[in-house]
């Protein structure tokens, strides 16, 4: 159990690292949202599942799973709201053509 938990935590941390790299590297807000809504959600999810496996079946792990479910619903919704708000304000996504024009 503990070994499986450690492996899951490792994978989760890797995904979190990818999120941060994506957040820094990707060209515009909308593409960054991709990195956040996908890798960050699964990253924190795997870390929490890993921690729950370390704990075993107790009330604490039940609460961890509850928090996990909440994050799985809340994270995409938050990303969705932010992009929606950005589009309403009139920020248009970056496209390949834009980068060609800049050069």
């Amino acid at each position: 159990m503990a070994i499986a938990g450690t492996v899951l935590i490792g994978v989760g941390l890797f995904l979190m690292a990818v999120t941060v790299i994506g957040l820094i590297r990707l060209p515009d807000f909308y593409t960054r949202t991709h990195a956040v809504s996908k890798t960050d959600t699964l990253g924190i999810g795997l870390v929490l599942v890993g921690l729950a496996l370390h704990e075993g079946v107790t009330l604490v792990s039940l609460k961890i799973v509850l928090g996990l479910l909440f994050i799985f619903i809340a994270n995409p919704v938050a990303a969705h709201l932010l992009t929606r708000s950005a589009l309403q304000v009139g920020i248009m996504p970056w496209t390949r053509r834009d980068s060609a024009r800049e050069q």
Binding site: F29, T33, I44, L51, L82
Partner: peptide
């Protein structure tokens, strides 16, 4: 940042990570 939305997104990422940090 560049736009306020980038900042909000980054703040959200920090927040999600810190949920994990609190449990650890």
């Amino acid at each position: 940042g560049r736009t306020i939305y980038d900042r909000l997104l980054a703040a959200g990422v920090v927040g999600t990570k810190n949920v994990g940090l609190l449990v650890v």
